[in-house]
Amino acid sequence: MKLLTHNMLSSNFVKGVTKGFPLKIMASKIEEKEVDFNPEFISRMIAKLDWPALYTAAGDIKKAEGLPETITENYESNEDFLKIAHNLLLQVEIIEGDLICPETGRKFPITNGIPNMLLHEDEVTGDK
């Protein structure tokens, strides 16, 4: 699971959870892959993402060093910033660990890089 994906994942569909975001990351195995740097794509994604949640997630896996707490101004033309974001969003991968719901503490396991967001029947919201 890449942090790009983590930035879109929430546990809001669990019964009783309102926001469920960001999910805390407890990682036991992390790898870094090599993905082609595409500044145009990264810039467009940054505009859609929740930067504070990315900053928190980076902290969870001890990768926040050198990462600005807020988005740099005119980041589209700041290659250094885009490269840091590219590495964090696309190259860092959580292979094993857990995602933890900030409201209930419910754990969603990550196995072989795939987070399991399935719920037990009694966790599903009835009114939806």
Partner: peptide, 13 residues
Amino acid sequence: ENIDLIQIDICSL
């Protein structure tokens, strides 16, 4: 290297 997978019930969304 740029495909990520999620196990999720699409209907829950």
